[in-house]
């Protein structure tokens, strides 16, 4: 019998987390309707190396115009796993983030901090046979936002992943260890206490490269899939 493991609602935020103001009018308010997954939910888009540019894993290079981007260079790596612990190979991982000053390239971001002409802040790569991905980037800065007085987002990198089916789709954010803004951030705090720390990367001296960049490890666990191809 083909199936996806259920969405683990004890691990995820609620749709409406009132401290995160914009969830109040945008979160699903009625109960979800449970359905048995069929082919539509046991399949999904598969994108691989064909959609990844040669420099897209390296955000310190894929947006260069006339020099190196400013800020602290870091390496972010980890494994993408299913809930059963098996690696998820050959799946697309996409990231986007603010620059070192806490400013996004996005036109809506009007924070009074400099744009960096040599940093786009978007990248992608594909996991290898062991489910591993690796990015080189600039450590993103914190930035203010309008959620409440003196609100600041902790340093974070946005992640988007597919996994093997539409059920395994995940969009999340990676944070950095020891960030004092985490306990004040309603988006991070919307996650149940016991699963929150899964969003915090860990510093690794093994990933750190001498005279080059600090290393952070962020493993990502998707819903599991146990699917047998449907033949007829």
């Amino acid at each position: 019998m083909s199936q996806n493991t259920p969405r683990d609602w004890a691990s995820h935020p609620r749709y409406i987390s009132p401290d995160y103001k914009s969830s109040r009018l945008r979160g699903v308010s009625r109960n979800l309707v449970e359905i048995d997954p069929e082919l539509a939910e046991l399949t999904g888009p598969a994108f691989g190396e064909e959609v990844v540019g040669p420099l897209d894993y390296d955000l310190t290079r894929n947006g260069r115009v006339n020099g190196e981007p400013l800020g602290e260079r870091i390496i972010v790596t980890g494994r993408v796993l299913g809930e059963n612990g098996d690696p998820v190979p050959n799946t697309l991982v996409e990231v986007w983030q603010a620059n070192a000053a806490g400013r996004y390239v996005h036109i809506r971001d009007q924070h009074d901090a400099p744009l960096d002409p040599n940093f786009l802040g978007a990248g992608r790569c594909v996991t290898d046979d062991n489910g591993e991905y690796r990015f080189i980037t600039i450590k993103p800065g914190a930035y203010p936002w309008g959620n409440h007085p003196n609100a600041w987002r902790p340093n974070h990198i946005h992640f988007s992943l597919y996994g093997p089916t539409i059920a395994t789709r995940l969009v999340t954010q990676m944070y950095f260890p020891g960030d004092p803004l985490l306990e004040l951030d309603p988006i991070y705090q919307s996650v149940p206490a016991e699963s929150r720390e899964r969003l915090v990367s860990r510093f690794s001296i093994d990933v750190t490269e001498e005279s080059y960049a600090l290393g952070y490890v962020f493993d990502i666990v998707l819903r599991g899939v146990n699917a047998t191809p449907v033949e007829a």
């Binding site: 969830s23 059963n84 986007w96 995940l170 969009v171 699963s195 899964r198 998707l222």
Partner: peptide
């Protein structure tokens, strides 16, 4: 080995240049 799912977070307001750039 059983693992626990990574929690979801909002896509936020700034996804456009990463996910729908063109």
């Amino acid at each position: 080995m059983a693992m626990k799912q990574t929690p979801s977070q909002t896509v936020g307001p700034y996804f456009a240049y990463g996910l729908t750039a063109q």
